[in-house]
Amino acid sequence: MNSGPALVSILRQGDTLVASVHTALDDSEMVRFQNDLVRQIGEYRARGVIIDVAALDVIDSFASRTLQTIADIARLRGAVTVIVGIQPEVAFAMVRLGMGMGEVATALDLEEGMAHLAGLRGSGARRE
Score class of each variant (00 low, 15 high):
residue 2 N to E: 07
residue 3 S to R: 12
residue 4 G to H: 09
residue 5 P to L: 08
residue 6 A to K: 07
residue 11 L to A: 08
residue 13 Q to G: 05
residue 13 Q to T: 05
residue 14 G to P: 01
residue 15 D to N: 04
residue 16 T to F: 00
residue 17 L to A: 04
residue 18 V to R: 04
residue 22 H to E: 14
residue 23 T to R: 14
residue 24 A to D: 05
residue 24 A to E: 12
residue 24 A to M: 12
residue 25 L to A: 01
residue 26 D to Q: 02
residue 31 V to G: 03
residue 32 R to F: 02
residue 32 R to W: 11
residue 32 R to S: 10
residue 33 F to T: 09
residue 33 F to E: 02
residue 34 Q to L: 07
residue 34 Q to N: 06
residue 35 N to E: 15
residue 36 D to V: 02
residue 37 L to K: 05
residue 39 R to P: 05
residue 39 R to W: 00
residue 40 Q to C: 07
residue 42 G to N: 10
residue 44 Y to H: 15
residue 47 R to T: 08
residue 47 R to C: 04
residue 48 G to L: 01
residue 50 I to H: 00
residue 51 I to R: 06
residue 52 D to N: 13
residue 54 A to C: 14
residue 54 A to S: 15
residue 56 L to V: 03
residue 56 L to P: 06
residue 57 D to H: 12
residue 58 V to M: 06
residue 59 I to A: 09
residue 60 D to H: 01
residue 62 F to D: 05
residue 63 A to C: 03
residue 65 R to K: 14
residue 67 L to R: 01
residue 67 L to D: 00
residue 67 L to N: 02
residue 69 T to Q: 14
residue 70 I to N: 01
residue 72 D to N: 15
residue 73 I to V: 15
residue 73 I to F: 12
residue 74 A to K: 07
residue 74 A to T: 06
residue 75 R to T: 13
residue 75 R to D: 14
residue 76 L to T: 11
residue 76 L to H: 08
residue 79 A to F: 10
residue 79 A to G: 07
residue 82 V to A: 09
residue 82 V to D: 02
residue 82 V to I: 15
residue 83 I to P: 02
residue 85 G to V: 11
residue 86 I to H: 07
residue 86 I to N: 04
residue 87 Q to W: 11
residue 89 E to A: 15
residue 90 V to S: 10
residue 91 A to V: 06
residue 91 A to C: 12
residue 95 V to K: 08
residue 97 L to N: 11
residue 98 G to V: 12
residue 100 G to P: 10
residue 100 G to R: 08
residue 101 M to Q: 08
residue 101 M to P: 09
residue 101 M to A: 11
residue 102 G to M: 11
residue 104 V to H: 06
residue 104 V to P: 02
residue 108 L to Y: 11
residue 108 L to Q: 15
residue 110 L to S: 00
residue 111 E to H: 15
residue 111 E to Q: 14
residue 112 E to Q: 07
residue 112 E to I: 01
residue 115 A to E: 06
residue 117 L to H: 07
residue 119 G to M: 00
residue 119 G to D: 01
residue 120 L to R: 12
residue 122 G to D: 08
residue 123 S to V: 03
residue 123 S to L: 10
residue 124 G to Y: 00
residue 127 R to P: 03
residue 127 R to I: 13
residue 128 E to K: 08
residue 128 E to M: 04
